[in-house]
């Protein structure tokens, strides 16, 4: 297909329109800029970081911010600015991985449950209800503790916790899609359930999932950092934001910069995702409200 015709394909026109509307919303633009900046920082961290994020330099211990060390140094003399940049990598990768997997699995589960209905739906949704009976952080903490403290356990735990949020949302959508005439048409023409779910149900839920996914990225980064903060995620000296704050806490009274900068980066990143997600929701899906 030529590019010109591709550009007029309804999906692309819709995408273009979405971007256009978002461009008029100053909050959305701000969110977009923050996220783009974070992604760039994360990608080019090795080029941008002036120091090795785990390189110890005992003579430079706990130095305040200066022209040399923008964000100061930690108790091992490591450059906090460099560590924060590498931290962006970790948080972004965790966020994208968790939301990718949880969003994918949750969508599949929700679409299946909603479309097939009956006992399977009942069973799956009860299971999701049970998982939603725990505050996110508590369930993630228990799971991570059971698997032993490590970054992998934290990622796994957060993924599991996020799945039901997607499943419940997509199920609602799927229930509505199920009643549409074109589903009946597909059935009559002999399509199997699996095919209909993949070709009709899921594509119809995509915009909802994108909105929830964006908002969940922020939550994921927060929960993952919290796990690291209480010692269940990334372990020192990994330059993970939550883990850095966990150690920096001990130096709060005299070396304020240690805990301050990683936290500021968490805050700004999550604001970026939340603001962008809110704006996307206003454009793509007025139905889901928080």
């Amino acid at each position: 297909m030529a590019i010109a015709t591709l550009r007029h394909h309804p999906r692309f026109r819709e995408l273009g329109l979405t971007v256009k509307i978002l461009g008029r919303n100053p909050l959305a633009v701000a969110g977009g800029i923050i996220i783009t900046a974070m992604i760039l920082l994360a990608t080019f961290a090795p080029l941008l970081a002036p120091f090795d994020p785990i390189g110890i330099s005992l003579s430079d211990r706990l130095k305040p911010p200066s022209g040399n060390h923008f964000f100061g140094t930690d108790e091992m003399g490591r450059d906090i600015f460099s560590r924060v940049l590498y931290g962006a990598r970790i948080s972004m990768v965790i966020g994208l991985m968790v939301v990718g997997i949880a969003g994918g699995l949750g969508t599949l589960i929700g679409a299946t449950a909603g479309f097939i209905g009956g006992r399977i739906d009942n069973f799956i949704m009860r299971l999701m209800d049970v998982m939603l009976s725990f505050p996110s952080l508590v369930l993630a903490m228990a799971l991570a503790a059971a698997m032993g403290p490590s970054l992998t356990s934290a990622v796994f735990a957060v993924t599991v916790v996020m799945i039901p949020k997607f499943a419940r949302l997509v199920r609602g959508e799927a229930l509505a899609v199920r009643e549409m005439p074109y589903i009946a048409a597909a059935r009559v023409s002999g399509a199997k359930n699996g095919w209909i779910i993949l070709h009709h149900v899921i594509p119809n839920c995509i915009s909802t999932v994108i909105v929830l996914g964006t908002l969940t990225l922020g939550d994921t980064i927060l929960v993952a950092a919290s796990l690291s903060f209480i010692g269940l995620g990334a372990q020192p000296p990994t330059p993970e934001w939550g883990a850095m704050i966990s150690v920096g806490r001990k130096f709060l009274m005299d070396q304020w910069w240690y805990a301050t900068f990683p936290g500021l980066f968490i805050l700004v990143t999550v604001i970026g995702f939340n603001v962008l997600g809110d704006a996307l929701r206003d454009v793509l899906d007025p139905r889901i409200r928080r």
Binding site: G218, L222, A225, S226, F229, G242, I245, R249, L252, A259, T260, P262, G263, I266, L267, V270, I271, F273, N274, V275, D278
Partner: peptide, 15 residues
């Protein structure tokens, strides 16, 4: 409120 929903609680506490 955007700051609120985006705030890492543990960091806010420290600040």
């Amino acid at each position: 409120s955007v700051f609120g929903v985006s705030m890492p609680v543990f960091w806010l506490g420290l600040m």
